[in-house]
Design a protein around this nucleic acid. Structure first.
Length: 638
RNA sequence: GCCCUUGUAGCUCAGCUGGUAGAGCAAUUGAUUUGUAAUCAAUAGGUCCGCGGUUCGACUCCGUGCGGGGGCACCA
């Protein structure tokens, strides 16, 4: 007698041991059809697994994460099968499930081409059609190693060596083809369905280590239905439409060029956007008690040696030699400069917390392969600040920073923020009791924020624990932006001290914080979040005034001047084009407000408002328009 | 940095197996004076990314450098 307990608490009795399939069949015909895998006492198993003892089991279908992941995992196997059928000398390595799909890494001399991908896809369909049955075998470790070595699968043999001794080595067969795999798998290749697509080929290091050889990775996606596959592909298209590199060009915001890879050439509109964000933050930071300063971009090598950057960060630093043979570094960070400002003049405990901010432009020699539009550049502007304080002030200051960041993100349309908290790494400086304090203070601030957070063990900076602020954009992508770090190291290295109440000189704690992180990167994120359609107040070109014909040019110019005078960015379009043409042109370039002026407007001293993405028009008294829309500009800094 | 891929007019892209380049949009000029997403016509645009090689001849083939894209690694 065997009792199987189901998730709803009901149980079924069987007279002898059973497989998952038999359990599913007992529950319902439709479940049997949909069943993909199961869990037995919480452990994922094939449906063909034989249950010998009383167990609680759950059956998964494609609606469950577990089921979907198994479909993807099986698709990866079929990919590997197809590749080996088409290109027999190719070695297989690993093929895990990832977000929205899977990949498989292969070792092969010749690169896979786009045409190969199509061939492989067709072969995969064929294999699915063949509906090869799955079965699982447990092999002795030595036998498995020898087997894979013999069949030329060096990588698989290596993987087996690393499987913990207590784990069994299982091999899955789909028909004759087999692969070392932990499982579980679907009962046959036909169960996958045909809603998959191979998306790209890329290089990837064996075991993710850049010292190892490079393998060829094929990425794919796989879904339970055509609808879900189409949906996913559409999402990707949507993301491509929002690509800030594309929009930046179309909207004439910035460009890049060969003479300075990874550095932005800001055009008028892009720079306006940049300046607007800076002015906005300046107001916010002034109110939050920050003192804005500015420090040199080029600083003597000796300072960087003392700060530790020369040694720890040197390979990312630009240097420059002057005609007198002195070596300077172009700053990759603002912190040493800020400590020097702190060091200028004697500081008292009464000066703390001292919040020094700078819109500091830094240069970092990033690996060429890392560059990516505005999101990863070599020269960028940090909205940086360093807070010098006592240990007792850490929590309070961290909390203030967190609130400031959330406030600012909210104004810019990001309400969904999570935190990543990272504590002490193995390689670190400073006493453990100081770390204890710093970690507790920072974690207290995290908890007080009431935001969702993750703890990344051991991922803190070598000089202190940190929080990273991750925001979620309009189409659900996460971006790491702000950062807050406690520094137990640099103030001491650079001899920062303050005179405490007892008259003794002490070393202050320093907090590093950035709100957007990099202005450049943040603008890239903003462009993608809004698909270029910025809210009125940040838009770098807010209004275009369009006269219907030459007759109304004078009125249009007057209107434009009045608008500019109330602080709205406006242009008048006097070009010899018809109204439709102009509306299209400025809609495509995403100007939020178009004002049309013709006879009706001149006679009544009004404007006709056409908002972006709306074909409704609103006629408004000009004075009212000026009042209403200039107020929108101010709303952000209230 | 590594693997793959790519580089033609301001932009988006054609250019077959080698015979020194074309379209649409934009620009300029002219006509048109327009009521809510592309009026018509004419004109002017190019070291075909750079450098080397093969060839009678290279945008096209080969090598190399640089840049872009997709990943990997990196992101203190």
């Amino acid at each position: 007698m065997l009792t199987i307990t189901l998730p709803d608490g009901n149980s079924i009795k069987f007279s002898k041991k059973v497989t998952g399939l038999e359990v599913a069949e007992k529950i319902s015909k439709s479940l049997l059809k949909q069943a993909l895998i199961m869990s037995v006492n919480g452990e994922l198993k094939d449906l063909s697994h034989i249950i010998e003892n009383d167990s609680s089991i759950k059956i998964f279908t494609s609606k469950d994460r577990e089921g979907l992941e198994t479909i993807r995992h099986d698709t990866a196997h079929v990919l590997a099968m197809a590749v080996q059928e088409l290109f027999p000398k190719t070695q297989v390595t690993i093929g895990p499930v990832i977000e929205n799909g899977f990949y498989y890494d292969f070792a092969r001399k010749d690169p896979f081409t786009e045409e190969d991908l199509i061939k492989i896809e067709n072969k995969m369909l064929e294999i699915i059609e063949r509906d090869e049955p799955t079965h699982r075998e447990v092999w002795k470790r030595d036998k498995a190693i020898e087997h894979f070595k013999k069949s030329g699968e060096i990588y698989k043999a290596e993987i087996i060596k690393d499987i913990p001794k207590e784990e069994e080595v299982s091999v899955y067969f789909h028909g004759k083809w087999h692969d070392l795999c932990r499982g579980p798998h679907l009962s046959s290749t036909g169960k996958i369905g045909k809603y998959f697509k191979l998306t790209k080929v890329a290089g990837a290091y064996w075991r993710g280590d850049s010292n190892n050889e490079m393998l060829q990775r094929i990425y794919g996606t796989s879904w339970p239905s055509q609808k879900e596959l189409d949906n996913y592909l559409k999402q990707i298209e949507e993301a491509e439409k929002r690509d800030h590199r594309k929009l930046g060009k179309e909207m004439d915001l910035f460009h890049f060029r060969e003479e300075s890879p990874g550095s932005v050439f800001w055009h008028e509109k892009g720079w306006k956007l940049f300046q607007k964000l800076v002015s906005y933050m300046r107001v916010k930071q002034d109110r939050a008690g920050y003192k804005e300063i500015n420090t040199p971009e080029v600083l003597d090598r000796a300072l960087w040696e003392k700060s530790g950057h020369w040694e720890k960060y040197g390979e990312h630093m630009y240097t420059s030699q002057t005609p007198d043979e002195k070596v300077f570094a172009i700053k990759p960070m603002n912190c040493p400069g800020h400590v020097q400002v702190f060091n200028q003049g004697l500081k008292s405990y009464r000066d703390l917390p001292l919040r020094i901010s700078e819109f500091g432009k830094v240069h970092r020699y990033e690996p060429s392969g890392a560059l990516h539009g505005l999101l990863r550049v070599r020269a960028f502007t940090q909205d940086d600040a360093h807070i010098f304080c006592t240990e007792d002030q850490i929590t309070d200051e961290c909390l203030k920073v967190t609130n400031l960041i959330l406030d600012i993100y909210k104004d810019l349309g990001f309400e969904n923020v999570i935190l990543k908290y990272s504590d002490r790494p193995d390689l670190r400086v400073g006493d453990d009791n100081v770390w204890d304090k710093a970690e507790k203070a920072l974690l207290d601030a995290v908890k007080a924020s009431k935001l969702e957070y993750t703890i990344n063990k051991g991922e803190g900076a070598f000089y202190g624990p940190k929080i990273e602020f991750v925001l979620r954009d309009a189409i659900g992508r996460d971006w790491q932006c702000g950062t807050l770090q406690v520094d137990l190291n640099l103030p001491e290295r650079l001899d920062a001290t303050f005179v405490d109440k007892d008259g003794v000189k002490k070393v202050p704690v320093m907090l590093h914080r950035a709100l957007f992180g990099s202005l450049e990167r943040f603008i890239g994120i903003l462009i993608e979040n809004y698909a270029g359609k910025f809210p009125f107040w940040i838009s770098p070109l807010q209004v275009i005034v369009i006269p219907i014909s030459e007759e109304f040019d004078k009125y249009a110019k007057e209107v434009n001047n009045k608008i500019i005078n109330v602080g709205i960015i406006s242009e008048v379009d006097l070009k010899n084009h018809n109204l439709n043409y102009k509306i299209r042109e400025h809609s495509v370039s995403k100007v939020p407000i178009l004002l049309i002026c013709g006879k009706k407007e001149v006679d009544s001293n009004t404007v006709s408002i056409r908002k972006l993405d709306s074909n409704k028009q609103e006629n408004m008294d000009l004075k009212l328009f000026l009042k209403k829309f200039s107020a929108l500009n101010k709303a952000s800094s209230n």
